[in-house]
Write a protein that binds this DNA or RNA. Structure first.
Lengths: 146, 146
DNA sequence: CCAAACTAGTCAGATACTCTGACTGTACCA
DNA sequence: TGGTACAGTCAGAGTATCTGACTAGTTTGG
């Protein structure tokens, strides 16, 4: 009668996150984008439209700049990103999305939309909207990068 | 005027998850539980009260049983878990929480409660309850293990 | 205008994590 | 009782991550 024990909220967040990531990763692989890893994708998805500095990517992904550099090297070799000098600072280089990376984005977006549609069908539209809204507000507390 | 772009729901889930994990990890380290890693903790928190089989832990954490064995070995060496034969199946052994692991649990729970209280103060009680409820329902779709 | 302090990124080396494949031993089933 | 399935381990390899030390460009305070 007590129903489910109130599962740790962290785990409650993690489970659907993991489900989403797995679906997107599998779908991209199926579409031919199978030459990158989840760790690389976690950096890739944080690249700003007009390019990001390595240090910023590292900060946002909460890894060291060395790790970020390692992952960006691989993304670069696979053709997903390219590096260009930052015109405003000769020390820095901008990591930008390369053609192969740009091609992957709509594929990923479509899978995200599909998963979100399934979730919305299960929860109902208003609850899904509430979920998204509350998570967005939580970001004010938990995301130092915006 | 357009406000924030609607951030990828996966990332929206990941950001608070990561925040929660970091807080708990840091708090445990401060309390003297500094001899384990996040990867070990992700396995540890899935151990059932009466013990779990290695294969089940691996499945729930979505890693191979070899990886799970590797992490449990370390948790065992650090005194967080112990292994006992499974009386119902001589092939299997039950991974159980050892005294040091049991001591860490209330500390972790207190930090989780603290973070949840902060989140609730920010969102308001009804929204926090809705968030928890919707995430719980999402689990029906995204968690094969319950 | 220049020396000190700071910042962007890389190099080198170590450790942690995860995987695939092959194997042992036990359980279950027809 | 023989075959198949399952629990777990062993061995080896690749991936991801870190700390510390370094180079080079930028900013700042006198």
């Amino acid at each position: 009668m007590a129903g489910e024990p109130p599962l740790n909220l962290g785990l409650l967040l993690f489970i659907p996150y993991r489900a989403m990531e797995s679906r997107v990763f599998a779908g991209l692989a199926e579409a031919g984008f199978d030459d990158f890893t989840p760790a690389q994708a976690r950096v890739f998805q944080r690249i700003a439209p007009d390019g990001s500095r390595l240090t910023d990517l590292a900060e946002q992904a909460q890894i060291t700049k060395q790790s970020a550099g390692f992952l960006v090297d691989q993304l670069e070799r696979a053709g997903y990103v390219e590096r260009a000098p930052d015109p405003t600072d000769a020390r820095a280089r901008l990591v930008r999305i390369a053609p192969r990376g740009a091609a992957a984005i709509p594929v990923a977006a479509a899978i995200v939309a599909e998963v979100e549609a399934e979730w919305e069908a299960h929860l109902g539209r208003p609850r899904m909207a509430a979920l998204r809204q509350h998570l967005g507000r939580l970001r004010e507390l938990t995301d130092p990068y915006r």
